[in-house]
Every structure is written in C-alpha cells, then in structure tokens.
Write a protein that binds this DNA or RNA. Sequence first.
DNA 1: TGTTTAGAATGGTATATACCAGTTAAGCAG
DNA 2: CTGCTTAACTGGTATATACCATTCTAAACA
Lengths: 238, 238
Amino acid sequence: MGQGKNQYQIIRTALNEQIESGALKPGSKLPSERLLSEKFGTTRITLRESLSSLEADGLVYREDRRGWFVSPERVTYDPTVNANFHTMVTRQGRLPDTRMIHADLVPATGRVQKLLQLPALTPVYRLQRLRSVDGRNVLYVENYINPAYFPDLLKHDLSRSLSDVYQEHYERQYARVSFRIYPVGLNTEASSHLKVTTGSSGLLVERTNYDQSGVLIDCDFEYWRQDAVVISADTRVT
Amino acid sequence: MGQGKNQYQIIRTALNEQIESGALKPGSKLPSERLLSEKFGTTRITLRESLSSLEADGLVYREDRRGWFVSPERVTYDPTVNANFHTMVTRQGRLPDTRMIHADLVPATGRVQKLLQLPALTPVYRLQRLRSVDGRNVLYVENYINPAYFPDLLKHDLSRSLSDVYQEHYERQYARVSFRIYPVGLNTEASSHLKVTTGSSGLLVERTNYDQSGVLIDCDFEYWRQDAVVISADTRVT
DNA sequence: TGTTTAGAATGGTATATACCAGTTAAGCAG
DNA sequence: CTGCTTAACTGGTATATACCATTCTAAACA
C-alpha cells in the first residue's frame, strides 16, 4: 500500500496530498505540465504518467487541450430510483443542467434495434443530450424511443427529464429498468461533447426501460465521465 | 467515429481489425512491443499508446511483465441475482475457480467499520480471495463478516461460495444487497494478485449484504479486472 | 468600449534512446 | 531426467527533444 518507489508514484503521492490537504480545491486547475515537471525535476512524459494514474482513480481530470483539474466529488447515480436526472442531482445539493444537442427520427439499426426488439429500420426517435453538474459536462446521453407510444414527442420541451414528459403527456412512467454497465474508452462522439481526449476511459450505462404495463418503451446509452459518478443501487436479491 | 488520423489511432484500428477478424484469438498473446513497433514503423512509446487505448476499451489486457493478450469475452455479473460466483460463471459456459489467499480476524476500521455499522475495533472476519474464469484471474475480493452471526466461520471450507456456507451452516441467506460501483485504479494489493500493473484501471464493487431478516451480515470489496466484466441488473423502479 | 488578430502558452502526439526488473527458455551439473 | 544457474527477452520506467493543434492572452484596431 501507499507510496511505491517509482518516481511517477512519488510524484503521484505528492500531488495526491496536495489535493487531500485542500491546497488544490475541487474544480481548480493544476499548473501546466511543463511547470509541474520542472518543479518535480522530471520530464513531461513521467509527469503525465503520474497525472494519468491520478486520472484513473478519478482524482483529477483533463479537458482536451485546456489542462488538468481537480475532480469534484462524484455524483451518486441510482439507475433503479426514478430515472430523473434533475431530481437526483438536486437532492445531492448540486446544480444539474441538460442541453439538447439534436433530436430526430432515424431508422433503428444494430444495438438499438436489438434492444428495442423492432423490425429492422423501424423509425425511432433519437435524442442526443449533454448533461452537466455544477457547470461541468459529465454525461452524454443518446435516447432511442419507440414512436408508437409517443407520437409527436419532439414537439415537447426535451431539455427537462424525459420521465416528466412521458408522465405529463402520455401517462406512461418508468416501472422497470434493465441496465448494463461497461467500463469503456469513450468514442469520438462522447469525447468531443464531454471535452475529453478521445479514448479516455469512461463508463457506459446501457439501459432498457419498461412502463407500468411492462411495455418496452425506450433505451438509452449513457456515457459518463469516469470520475464523475458512482453507480449505486439497493435491491432485493432474487 | 472510426479511424482518426493520428498514428496511434491508425495502429489501434489495425490491431482492432486483427482481433475482430479472428486472426488474433481471445486469450492469445500479442507479439512483443518491440516487434510490433518495428512492424508498424514506429516507436515503443507510440505503440504503447495504441495498446493502452485498446486496453481502455477492454479489447486487450496485459499481465505485468509477461505481455499483452487478447481479452476473452466479458463475464456478466448481476449483483442482484443470488450472490454465487460459481453458479453465475458456470451458467455462462465458463469455468470458475476460487482460491483462498488469507483468512483471519481483524479489528474493523475505516470503511469497513462504517459499512458494517460496528463500534470501532470490533473484530471481524476478513477473507481475501482470488477468483478466476477459464484460468484467468479476474477478481480479487475482500470479505468482512460480522462474527456475531457466524461463529467459527473459518472452520468451514471457504473456497466455495460464501452464500453456500451461510445457508448450510448458519441458515442465513442473502436477501437484500446494496452496492456501489467505482471506476478506480487498482491498488497495490489487487494489482499484484491480478497480475496487472499497479494503478491500471479496474472496477471496484462495494457491497453490503443483508439476510432474510434484514440483518446486516457482511460487506465486501470486489476488485474486477476492467475488461473482464459487465455489470448487469434488472430491477423495478422505486 | 467592443472586436479582431497575432503571438504566446498549453496539452497532444511522436521519435530516439537507455536502463531496470521480472519472466522465460536454454544450458549445464548432478 | 531433474534441478539449478544463467543469459536472453519482455514489459516498466525514465530522460531529452521536437513539432502540431487548439486555447488563451493581450495588443492593436475599429
């Protein structure tokens, strides 16, 4: 346990202590790589080893070409407790926001078609949205929705929670959810929206959602910043 | 999407195609870094960028100082379906194994004390076990068990599932589970047992378990190889 | 005062090289 | 054939350097 003897681990430990002592506050920017490597008497490459190690632990994160920052506290995400992002984040004393990137109707293919159990090329609504906590983008979501159950969905305000729109205009609500969690490298799409380097690790939460009658109504792909979330659930064992 | 223009991404794509085409089979060893970097006309550092990227996606993995290997298919792990590793893995047509590393009685401290809601320094059983699938170590687990409910626990065979021992000798079974999933860098302990480089990313599943009477009986910390598992659950929304 | 723009700074990517530490296979002694 | 030692090989870590792409800053301008 603790400080290994390798140089990059020593530096890692030093930075770690700076963070835990509060000398570096959550959200604040670290000094530049060049300055840090000079201070620690090493090269940028080794310094970046240390930072990558801290990144893997979710203690720091980076924004593409902008620099390294101290990670804020993780948001707790419970996929089994009413699928409402805004309520969940607000309850934790944080400030949520959702930004609609794109909404359209596309033919179901590949994974979407399989998850929604539709004939090939059936048109489905696709929502691409970006969600932030305290001003930091943490989650890129793609929703795929069976239009049979939600005619004219795109006419409504989709910057809020989908579940609210479902309940208010269609009298449907999430009642059962099936989800799978993959540790992955973020793809180009997710990376660019989250402003992280392509391929940096993240968490993919793939969900399929059923309404109160057991009807499969939609699925979504949630690409989380790796350091932004802890998945939590409390369930009966079956 | 797809092949970016950077060299390491081009190499990444090339290796990826080799894997998907089946030219490199799951579990097989890749050529050495030096040989690969020569074949792709680049340096080891850049080649390692490509490999790390594939590693982040769980397509390849490495064993410390032994080399790079093609990742086998992920095991699906459902924390809500009867906590039995052997049954779960066997059902997926894979071969499970559990190896006991150490078992003892230690004072509850820190996170363990908090999770088990015990007075400080209360003695608890600690089990350290290593679990493999098809001969590959994928999971390092530490169990912490309240001895009040399981007197003389260490006298039984603990290379099998705990839940079996619980049921057979103590008439208790898992009935409710609370779990949290953190993407983390693996600590020294877990890394060494899983034979991965210290700090390489993994998944920490922290569980607290309750029996049929709602009594909090144990907690555990499961350190998974990042590429070895997909967490899956199906639950009612509450 | 607000906008444009050129230059500085920063992180991203890449080459070349070297030595260390653990693994593995070959060779040797018994 | 078995057990031990040794040497080659592999990945892990580290230094030094360079150029590119984007972001940021501050000066020049409207």
